[in-house]
Nucleic acid binder design. Sequence first.
DNA 1: TAGTGGTCTAGACCACTAG
DNA 2: TAGTGGTCTAGACCACTAC
Lengths: 242, 242
Amino acid sequence: MRATLDPPGFRPLYQQVRDLLRQRIMDGVWSPGDPLPAEPRLAAELGVSQGTVRKALDELAAANLVDRHQGRGTYVTRQTAERALFHFFHVVDADGRRVTPSSRTLDCRRSVGTAWEIERLGAQPGAIVVRIARIRTLAGRTALVERIAVPASLFPDLGGDGDLPNALYELYQTRFGVTIARATEHLRAVAAADDDAELLGVAAGAPLLEIDRVAYDLEDRPVEWRLSRLLSDGFAYLSELT
Amino acid sequence: MRATLDPPGFRPLYQQVRDLLRQRIMDGVWSPGDPLPAEPRLAAELGVSQGTVRKALDELAAANLVDRHQGRGTYVTRQTAERALFHFFHVVDADGRRVTPSSRTLDCRRSVGTAWEIERLGAQPGAIVVRIARIRTLAGRTALVERIAVPASLFPDLGGDGDLPNALYELYQTRFGVTIARATEHLRAVAAADDDAELLGVAAGAPLLEIDRVAYDLEDRPVEWRLSRLLSDGFAYLSELT
DNA sequence: TAGTGGTCTAGACCACTAG
DNA sequence: TAGTGGTCTAGACCACTAC
């Protein structure tokens, strides 16, 4: 451990351990849901103290890469539908309560990516993307129109078999080994275009909240671009500043 | 320390230390910008090990309550204009770059709070509020209209002397001893009303991004309600999901 | 040079989980 | 009961800051 990594910039040991463990997770040495070796085993294997391993694991836990449970062990975080909702779905109703969506896929097909999609996904010109359109229902109302683009290279046969599930990020991980680690969203107010207006049952030109999201995987590569438009009468986007 | 706090639920020592230090900061024992005693001194005073004090201070640093600097010491966080902007102002331009606003106060007067203001601020019916209206300029354009309400009881002579500064949260802290610790924002798309449309130079009915913010102090009391409307053509609200 | 926080270790004991 | 992570301690050494 120290012999292999220490020399150059003298980064703290616990950071070297943290990065090494993160790399193993990204390489699939341990898969989502798998337990990591116990702290004393890792410490012995790497030739550091248990305290150093602990500090590394605590940082991985803070970054949601592992889940730790006293008495049970440390596990690679599994992308559950609940976690995806909690972390990546910030819509609340008029009273400020979180709502849970259901989804219906309108369309799913592959084609050459537009310049806009290519740029957002950091892909090569001419790359093939899978393009998904769907509507989502909140509290019984059709309130959200989503247009999603992902690189076909990462999601080989996505959508080949019928309807898509509500929790896409869970599907990405279990079926394609792509874990969404973070996302950035840009929010704007837009006037409803004719097609969106019809889907949402509002007049053309009505104000909609547009959410432009790029999602990144564990290696911080952009892997999904998603443009959502939300009915802004009865729902809001919640942002907590701490 | 242990004798005074340990008995009931047996909360971990470092949490008791953390809460005690936080309470001292809230009580003004140490003011913003002041240094805390060094770790060994705190440890000796409280009768715990330096490692326990360290863990408590690390959590306070993570919560932005103190700033720690190797070789210098631990200081109560001061509300700088930069920090306020970084934490509480999430507007970016069309290219995704953060912009820094300047402000012009249109109006500032006290009156009995509306039912809406009272509810948002958790105040008593009939309470007096200071109501501020201002416009903010981003990259040379008037892009933001803000209406702010704060309880007059906490901000005795706010606005009594001419124009208000751009960085209100810095003013709240230095002049009134009110530190903004966190905020929750609800975002919606709205159609511009006549008055806002005129201020922003757009047609009535144009889509605007409305940001409804309640800001809380160190004791988690709501102390400011702010309704902002942002020109949504050329600017966006950035939200990072991690 | 003295004092600060940052890292690292070694070991003890505790709380929780599972078989 | 055995094994896990959580807490707490004591002490060493290091990196950085200020005087």
